[in-house]
Design a protein around this nucleic acid. Structure first.
Lengths: 177, 177
DNA sequence: CCAACCATGTAAGCTGTTACATGATTGA
DNA sequence: TCAATCATGTAACAGCTTACATGGTTGG
């Protein structure tokens, strides 16, 4: 089956700690993960989908009517597979936020070596992107309309800042281990 | 009628210069505007929607069978309305790319004063966001799990870089006029 | 002449949005 | 007790993805 971005975000949160559907909605509504939909018409069907595919299970607290979702072994290995997919240039250019989300979630499921591998892969691609953008800006920048050039520069600065982050994060994680 | 993000992207490109549907798809496929779908099942229905709502018109070159889309007056004023909407904090946090796209497109339709107003509004919100994130990071950063803290830091660095861009861009545009 | 690309389109299926509905629980 | 929030859900609708289909044009 196909796993959507929302599915991964839900899986990652449930893996972090079991939660109710409502609690998951609140996370999307109130935290920096707000890129994802918090609407009930998105969350509840997605949870049922995930449960049908055995990636999560709902369990009721004894006595209570309230259910919480727990991640299954299959769910954890799906997550792990996702973490270990090499980020592609396309993903880095279009969905960097999702890659950072991945990073945030992988702490509990990956070994330090795997995390370092992930960050190195990301670093390599960000270097390529920054180098490519730099070259373009230097040679063709003048030909662009003013706003086009400035908007392009925003992208360049943004990738450079992500590359900075990647490098300092690599060092920090190495230092911690 | 409701205008989607893809609609605005199409409108902005057509306003820049008239193009065929295929040419529009190629832009999304090959340039940094690649966040938007280039699939025919998205573009062609969107173009028909826009034409039905009189925001664009298709015209055939004399003799040729090929048609190009041109923006209408209504289309231009829709675009202008969109440009002049104050960016909200929510938009800045979730769809900054769209705001930068807006900036790229507004050169031809807005006066310098209006562009400066737009950038000042954006700057104000980015300052708020950076200040808020900074405060959170300083006080609650230690309580976060390692990867959570590092991912949060990525967001902070990213907004700071956008704020930098915003400030230098304000100066650059003032200098040009 | 054949492959690659130009150029446009349709149909099925899925996901998300919006809006509505329901009932339980909690705090003032 | 009344409002707010907790908590879960459904239904209509719109939009995008994927996959397929069609025919024209260009270059080797």
């Amino acid at each position: 089956m196909k796993i959507t971005q929302l599915d991964y975000a839900l899986l990652g949160l449930i893996n972090e700690s079991p939660r109710s559907g409502y609690a998951l909605r609140k996370v999307f509504e109130t935290t920096a993960l707000g890129n994802y939909s918090s609407s009930p018409g998105a969350i509840y069907p997605a949870l049922r989908r995930l449960e049908k595919n055995n990636l999560i299970q709902s369990r009721k607290e004894e006595g209570s009517t309230k259910a919480k979702y727990f991640i299954s072994n299959a769910g954890q290995s799906s997550l792990k597979d996702w973490f270990l997919e090499e980020p592609t240039r396309e993903e880095v250019e279009k969905r960097l936020d999702l890659i950072i989300l991945k990073f945030a979630f992988m702490e509990q499921l990956l070994a330090t070596q795997e995390v370092l591998g992930f960050l190195s892969g990301l670093q390599k691609i960000l270097q390529q992107v920054v180098t490519g953008y730099d070259a373009f800006y230097a040679t063709k920048g003048e030909e662009l309309p003013t706003h086009g050039r400035l908007a392009f520069k925003h992208g360049l600065m943004s990738y450079r800042s992500s590359l900075d982050w990647c490098e300092t994060t690599l060092l920090e994680i190495k230092k911690l281990n």
